[in-house]
Design a protein around this nucleic acid. Structure first.
Lengths: 202, 202
DNA sequence: TTACCAAGTGAGAGGCCTCTTACATCAAAT
DNA sequence: ATTTGATGTAAGAGGCCTCTCACTTGGTAA
């Protein structure tokens, strides 16, 4: 189980190491400059090694997508529990959890639902993304909204605003104002609250 | 002034044609796969020709960014006027105008404020982006919000939600629900209204 | 008319990428 | 002890990209 530099010819668990390195690479350079070769360098193996574990680049990205969906779901559940019992607060916390997760990992919806993955059949990814959506929808159903359709639309709006704040933050749009991660996460949650209040008219 | 296929060795206005082709390229493949070579092919010139008008790829993107900021500002002004006299409706219309502009051109904030442009000095781009922000801020100041800071935060929230809906739409997140452009634009405007109402508490 | 020059062209250097192939290594099963 | 197979490597084919360079073209000004 030697993990760092004391590996010999064989790695031990290169598949997992490649996924970890992929997250680091995404956080550092984004999906735009994501490359298998760079991930292999980061993991300290040759550029051919990843192809022993993934048939091609898209399958590696698919595995990253699955891991991101799983981890993001866990982060959302943790945040919801930390938000207490109020269903509105629990749902709004999704925006903050999404923002923090994506800012720190670089793996947001543009990675989880990346176009290039549509052609990649990967049951594990499908299951994780399905569970992720289900979890968020459940949080929305706990809020008293008039209809199923409106709950779905509310979830979409919250994801949109969370993703929007994330993009603006990572693209440097807030650089002038120099908003911190915490401050921006707070903004995202506040915006989500506003969206929930608009839909949740008792 | 021959524009289409009847040009001889010289083009006439290749600079403008390259910017137009860049927009088409962005709308088709996005910033991720934007390349000078592909833009040149689309404009029907050799891959060396663009370098007569732009010193490098980033300067071309900077010119595209400037044009996008100019056109987006115009689209926002048009939408605001179409929204009537209510300051809230005028401000909310920004979200719809942003969504429609970016869906049709592919040139949103990730292009206008792209990281690679930070090192490119381009007074025209700076002026256009400044005017764009000023225009949106003016629409926010017309709404009765408690403070300048809150007006700025409100603008950021509206841009975030508009950008978020745009990203989700272009990344295919809504593919299951198959929301139309008009329907999604309506959602963005409705979300902007909710954000404005939350801030605009008289 | 001619000479000039802005703005085209083709060719290609050099870079990074994806993915393949033949070979190397080592742990585990025989 | 030997074999075997999973997993690593080095080398490289082939692709697309950015950007350069020497050369060509044709409108304009002397």
């Amino acid at each position: 189980m030697g993990e760092s530099r004391d590996r010999g010819y064989h790695h031990g668990d290169l598949r997992a190491a490649l996924i970890t390195a992929s997250f680091e690479q995404l956080a550092e350079v984004g999906l735009r400059r994501f490359s298998v070769a760079a991930v292999a360098r980061r993991a300290g193996v040759s550029s051919a090694a990843p192809y022993r574990h993934f048939p091609d680049r898209d399958h590696l990205l698919s595995a990253v997508s699955a891991a991101a969906a799983r981890d993001l779901r866990a982060a959302i559940l943790t945040a919801a529990d930390a938000a207490g019992d109020d269903p509105c607060a629990r749902l709004a916390s999704v925006a903050g959890a999404y923002f923090r997760y994506v800012v720190s990992t670089g793996a947001g919806l543009h990675v989880i639902y990346a176009q290039e993955l549509y052609a990649v059949p990967d049951d594990e990814r499908r299951e994780h993304t399905r569970a992720l959506m289900e979890t968020v929808l459940d949080l929305a159903f706990a809020v008293d909204v008039p209809s199923y359709q409106q709950a779905v639309a509310l979830v979409e709006a919250i994801i949109a605003v969370a993703h929007g704040y994330t993009s603006l933050f990572t693209d440097g749009f807030f650089n002038r104002g120099a908003l911190s991660i915490d401050a921006t996460a707070g903004r995202a949650v506040a915006a989500a609250h506003a969206l929930i209040r608009a839909e949740h008219t008792p």
